[in-house]
Design a protein around this nucleic acid. Structure first.
Lengths: 353, 353
DNA sequence: TTGAAAGCGCTAACAT
DNA sequence: ATGTTAGCGCTTTCAA
């Protein structure tokens, strides 16, 4: 490997502008106490020479690294990549995170870390030591892993916890699963549905339960019964079909079903079709997550969009601009929206009276 | 921002092991001339203290940065992210690239750069100056941009050009579009088809033309006519429908169609269905790219898989292990494979005699 | 408001 | 086979 040096360094700029290194440094960092004329002269040299500071050197001298580290669960992420089911979680996190970083002259680095591992701390520690990021963004299930949050807190590294509402160190951020589920349910109620089934995710996931809560809230507020209308799945396709059939086998079956994620709702769609039901005529369907797949079903699915990009964008912004300021004590809420497509309609007359 | 220092540095390790900094450095870098006993003692201290070298410091002292930079076209990538059509190109590049980097103790950084821009050089230069990557991976259309390849060559930064077969600086790598198209066509011929239509991409893309070449080759070898059987689209959904209808309106219409990408083939599927054709009974369909969407159509599409992950993995490996060695003069070929699903079958008897 | 000196963590070059 | 020295490019003291 060739010993590569910086093509243009702060020294070149200083020499060109006829000032000290320090003055150039001040201009780079927009520090006060630089006369406009001076600032202009230095900037001219910077532009002329095409100078860009080395983040390695900046980091070395004890300043920022201009790096934000986003961490995903290794196992799950790789499984998604391998299966190619069209989940675009990673894309959306890059979309929101990278672009916001770029706005501030930062870079986002994406890393995979095993959560279910004795040496999470070592693995994370290695990434931190190697990269020295100015901030870290945690996604589920890392967001709730005390080994990780504790480590970051101890090292005083600012971090955000996506999909977490518990208090503690770091900025808790949520996409308002409960509110989204409530709004989706209310939408169906407004269409005239009164029997609304819910296919829930596994209880190990906090967001599964938040989504149930939202549905239950809306149902209860409208004085509708929830009895037997909530069935658990495991977020996988097969479990969605089983759950849908269980709901449709009820003596008094639902006229609408909300699925807690796209895979399960997809399965519910297929199961309903297999029973000869027409969507949305005989059964309305709302999905959660709004991954690309819901646009390719027939009919396209009405879905709750998870504002992943917006959440990462906000996380980056808080991390960068917040500096050492206080961490908000309330979770930061980024609301998802309901994307209406063709799988929802008023219940048909020939259903229940 | 708190002035953050490395928690454990090479000094701590040296002190703990009672050796010089240099010896620790040698152990870190697996250099020769260290006695096993010494190496063991130092390694023990490293493990005990949980030491991980700072890449910033490593880079500063003139060694590697352990960073590989992968660059995509900004406009296209953002459009994909925004549209959420399920393209998983970025995911697959990370899948292949990041994991291979990790194997070697490297990191992959993903960046967006405008190609159609006067100051590509400035933009790329800034990324290079800031990050000092040990290698760069270019994707289309950057792979063919002389401003970019020239810049990298001038700076003597090793780089790979994905989807490029032209000679010149950098490692040319191709997913064998021509071969893939040929094999797809041969597959249809083997099934008994003789009228095989081809929906091509726009001619501005090299790979569009490679794919046509492969199809034409296979057709010619089998002494089949290509007349009127190749129609251009623009890779967008709408153009695929138009092209398919044009082909199916022929006096002697094809019994099979190959689409140059998933969106166009999707449209062809929909167009064929709209005409009352049964797939694959009346018309066989093969798609290109094998993005997640082809698994969600009815029937699922037989498709040519683009080995994106494998290609990036190989690119990283070449970049890291090749060092300053010679660049291969032939393009590196990573073959794609045909994934057989349910959209292909022998032509029906009631078609042409 | 500007400049000079010291040092960040590490490795290359040169001892020994 | 191991240690010593110098310096990478930048920012933080501190001085003028």
């Amino acid at each position: 490997m060739a010993r590569r040096r910086q093509a243009v360094t702060i020294k070149h700029v200083a020499a060109d502008a006829g000032v000290s290194l320090q003055t150039v440094s001040r201009v780079i960092n927009n520090e006060p106490n630089v006369r406009p004329a001076m600032q202009e002269r230095v900037q001219a040299s910077i532009d002329k020479l095409g100078y860009v500071p080395s983040i390695a050197a900046q980091r070395m001298s004890g300043s920022r690294s201009y790096l934000i580290l986003a961490i995903n669960d290794r196992e799950r992420t790789i499984a998604d990549w391998r299966n190619r089911q069209g989940s675009d979680w990673v894309d959306q996190m890059l979309f929101g995170g990278m672009l916001k970083c770029a706005e501030h002259g930062y870079r986002m680095i994406f890393e995979l870390v095993d959560t279910h591992n004795d040496h999470v701390e070592r693995e994370l520690g290695a990434a931190i030591a190697a990269l020295q990021p100015d901030g870290v963004i945690l996604t589920p299930p890392h967001s709730e892993n005390p080994l990780i949050t504790g480590f970051l807190a101890k090292r005083k590294i600012p971090f955000a916890r996506i999909g977490s509402v518990t208090s503690g160190p770091g900025i808790a951020m949520t996409m308002d699963d409960e509110g989204s589920a409530r709004r989706a349910t209310e939408h169906l109620i407004a269409l005239g549905h009164s029997r609304i089934g819910f296919i829930a995710g596994p209880k190990e996931y906090d967001l599964s339960n938040w989504r149930i809560d939202g549905w239950r809230e809306a149902m209860t507020s409208a004085e509708l019964s929830c009895d037997a209308l909530c069935v658990r799945g495991d977020f996988g396709y097969d479990s969605g079909g089983l759950a849908a059939n269980a709901l449709l086998d009820l003596k008094d079956p639902p006229t609408a079903i909300i699925g807690s994620n796209d895979q399960m709702t997809l399965a519910a769609l297929d199961a309903a079709k297999a029973r000869g039901l027409h969507i949305p005529g005989d059964l309305s369907l709302i999905s959660f997550d709004n991954t690309p797949v819901v646009r390719f079903t027939v009919p396209e699915l009405t879905a709750v969009d998870q504002p992943i990009a917006a959440t990462f964008s906000k996380a980056v912004e808080l991390l960068i601009t917040n500096g050492d300021a206080l961490v908000p004590h309330q979770p930061v809420v980024i609301e998802g929206s309901l994307i209406e497509r063709s799988s929802t309609a008023p219940p048909s007359a020939h259903g229940r009276a």
